[in-house]
Simulated assay, not measured.
Amino acid sequence: MADLQDELHDPPSASELPHLFATPYVPDSAPEPTATGEGDDLPARARALLAAHPVADGHSGLPRALRHLPRYDLQLGESAVDTDLPRLREGHVGALFCALHPTDGPALGATLEQLDLARSVVETHPEGLRPALTAGQVLDARNCGRVAVVLGPAGAAALDDSLGILRVLRSLGLRVLTLAGTSWASEAGLTRFGEEVVREMNRLGVIADLSGASDATIGRALTLSRTPVLCTRSAARALCPHPDNLSDGLLARLGAAKGLCMVPLAAEQTGPGVRDVADHLDHVRAVAGPECVGLSGTYDSGTAHPQGLADPSGYPHLVAELLRRGWPETDLAMLTWGNVQRVLRGADFAARAAQDRSQPSTAKIADLDG
């Protein structure tokens, strides 16, 4: 029923929903006043908008950050990591995509360990976190004042070239898979087996993450995928030539395919300050369209963050800057919440339709790429 309600009703305006996250945010420094003298109202406007349309954060390294801690308490606050419930509430974060990217050991085993840890974290913090497998469950968690935890992205190396492992990971809750770092998704693009992986992902409702993939892989995946794709940590290459950032040509193709570029709050990709991040958001919005831009904190991923955005509590500061620049509230609501919901909902519905008409793929890499 939640899926049906999510499909039939457009996201409410900022004035139509109660404030689900009551902890106020006080920015490090107030935004500059606008020419009309409304600058003093921007932090309050940002908090009001985020209360109705919280942030769906596309990439959190929390499982990896917690694995070496002997004990932790995210409910009261945890200084050893960037992310805890007080800061998530202060930043009005409503959904968190937990990355399952291993740094050492066999990829599948390390991915399963991080998946298990992510699930354990949710189970031990029921007051603030709730697992979410579908767009409807993400919406339900938000409406209950919980942060929805979505599993993924995980690295494609964890599949060990097996579609059976993909199906098992999906049964364990995986929703996003990064198409990079394998023989079938390389600088040369997707092989025949890689194309079969994308088709099976569409059938299962596993969303393709193209951040870190080659331009050739991104281009072919955009053509092949029947559901929108994500770039969970990509900014504008025209502003910063980082290898994970996207060219204007790819941004335009991503927008045409109704995909989503989630701009990371990572200084090496966007720059040292809030305004640098806002510049990238402006650029992606202008090139790909307002339906193609989202946010990715990349907190607890071992990267440096722009000043004023050191942890999730800084999101209102960024939204206030975008309001100062004249972003309409409709575009901001899509940026923070609506675009992620659209992608999840599209993947859910496409998967149900595909499962009604097709069986699981039995393709083997040796048969297609041998």
Rank of each mutant, 00 (worst) to 15 (best):
R167M: 13
E196R: 09
R192V: 06
T191K: 01
G173R: 07
D160W: 14
T191Y: 01
L159P: 09
V198Y: 02
L133S: 13
E196I: 03
C144A: 15
R167S: 14
S171T: 14
G164P: 02
S214R: 02
A148E: 10
A156I: 09
G155D: 03
L159N: 06
V150P: 08
L166V: 03
S183D: 01
I165N: 12
E195C: 04
L174Q: 05
G173H: 09
G155N: 08
L172K: 01
L177G: 05
R142H: 14
A185T: 06
E196H: 07
L169N: 05
R146W: 07
V206A: 04
V198D: 04
R203V: 12
A156K: 10
A188S: 14
L204I: 03
G145M: 03
S183T: 02
S186W: 00
E187A: 12
S183N: 03
L151C: 07
T134Y: 01
I165C: 10
E196L: 08
A208G: 06
D140P: 00
L133Q: 13
T191H: 01
A180I: 03
V168G: 11
S211W: 04
S171Y: 08
L172S: 04
A132H: 12
F193W: 03
V150I: 15
T182P: 04
A188I: 02
L133T: 13
I165D: 11
A135Q: 15
A148R: 08
V150K: 10
A148T: 14
A148Y: 09
T182K: 05
V206L: 06
L163E: 12
D160C: 15
S186E: 01
R192K: 13
L166G: 02
M201Y: 06
A180Q: 06
V176P: 02
L151P: 09
R203L: 12
I207Q: 14
V197T: 00
L151R: 09
S183E: 00
P153C: 02
L179C: 01
F193C: 00
L133D: 12
V138E: 11
L177D: 08
E200A: 05
T134M: 01
S183K: 00
S186P: 00
L177M: 11
V168R: 13
R142P: 06
R167H: 11
G173Q: 11
I207N: 12
G145L: 03
I165Q: 11
S162N: 12
L166F: 02
A180Y: 05
L151D: 06
D161E: 15
T182F: 08
A188C: 08
E196A: 11
V150T: 12
A157K: 15
L159V: 07
G181R: 13
V150A: 07
A157H: 09
Q137D: 10
R192W: 07
L159I: 11
S171A: 14
Q137M: 11
G164L: 08
A156Y: 03
A132K: 15
V197R: 00
R192F: 04
A135L: 14
A157R: 15
L139N: 10
D160A: 15
A148I: 10
I207L: 14
T191F: 02
L172V: 04
D161C: 15
T178Q: 14
E200S: 06
M201S: 05
